[in-house]
Design a binder for these strands. Structure first.
Lengths: 164, 164
DNA sequence: TCGTTGAACTTGACGCTTCAACTATAGGGC
DNA sequence: GCCCTATAGTTGAAGCGTCAAGTTCAACGA
């Protein structure tokens, strides 16, 4: 169950690349959380959920699809959606006659919340991430991100909109 | 306090790059945690702490330096180190005559633990991350990671070893 | 038509992280 | 010597995320 005989250690270059990536994974979400928290009283994850719904014409999506869209477990989503529903930012409704499916729909208050939070969030994404990239890096990050997602979960090909 | 007048929205390419990066931030730590959990009963963060100590000749570092090395708050580190100490993987000692400084030292058990966990952890880093990179991406990820870290915290130029 | 299986959530408990105090020590200023 | 501030860590409470179990519904087989 452990690794084979002699593990392929990381080269020095690989190790540096990995440590730098690990630093992103640890600090970037924290930084974005802090900004959203003080500007809109939302977590990064909550924002992603609202944003993904706001992109839909009918502001509605099934729970599982949201979960796939924000790369999270259904359980985590369920807790967060319950909280957002209690705040009146969205509401849930069972789809009758189709198993246990549940739709979440953004309320007007929820939509207003995303619209209000978006400008500063986008600015934060630029400040902490996008501005650190050179032009050619944008395409690289997209390719690498999707490749990593595929490695981690080959089953779920990653959701991404389906809108527009 | 909100953004200026007209926010600079993300272009379509930037948006895709950002979503892919966000997916990494959400799924990669979870995947590594899962592997370390079942192979060594450690979290990714606990592993990082032990690993950073193991690289030192005397297996010893000051709390603040460890915190900087693993990009974490002192509070978080304190809780985790307390837990690791309870498990006998490291021990703390005050440095007399130099303020409130505390050193953490890896015990033999702790060293054995990292050595045992390392091969599978490295394999996991390859499986989920390194193997998704093309050769040229390694240098890019290192540069981008360090640039992002600088954007988020210009004060702390990022620690990285100082060993060897 | 009854029981079983599988899908789609929900829930509760537990552990980890964060935040805001709080403590202890050293280094001045006067 | 005494106070003031800064530095370095610790601690407890509150909130978030994860895991395992539970619930509800549809579909299918006998």
């Amino acid at each position: 169950m452990a690794a084979p005989e002699e593990p392929r250690w990381l080269s020095d270059e690989e190790r540096k690349a990995w440590l730098a990536t690990a630093a992103i994974m640890i600090t970037l979400p924290a930084a974005l959380d802090a900004r959203l928290q003080q500007e809109a009283n939302l977590t990064f994850f909550e924002y992603m959920v609202l944003a993904v719904l706001a992109e839909r014409d009918d502001r509605t999506m099934q729970m599982s699809d949201i979960a796939a869209g924000v790369s999270a477990s259904l359980s985590r989503l369920s807790h967060v959606v319950a909280k957002l529903e209690k705040q009146g930012l969205l509401c849930r409704s069972r789809v009758p006659g189709s198993g246990r499916r549940t739709n979440a729909t953004l309320t007007d208050a929820g939509h207003a919340k995303v619209v209000a939070a978006a400008p500063d969030h986008v600015a934060a994404v630029r400040d902490y991430f996008m501005d650190a990239l050179e032009p050619a890096d944008v395409a690289t990050m997209q390719r690498v991100g999707m490749a990593v997602a595929r490695c981690i979960n080959p089953a779920r090909p990653f959701f991404h909109g389906a809108t527009r």
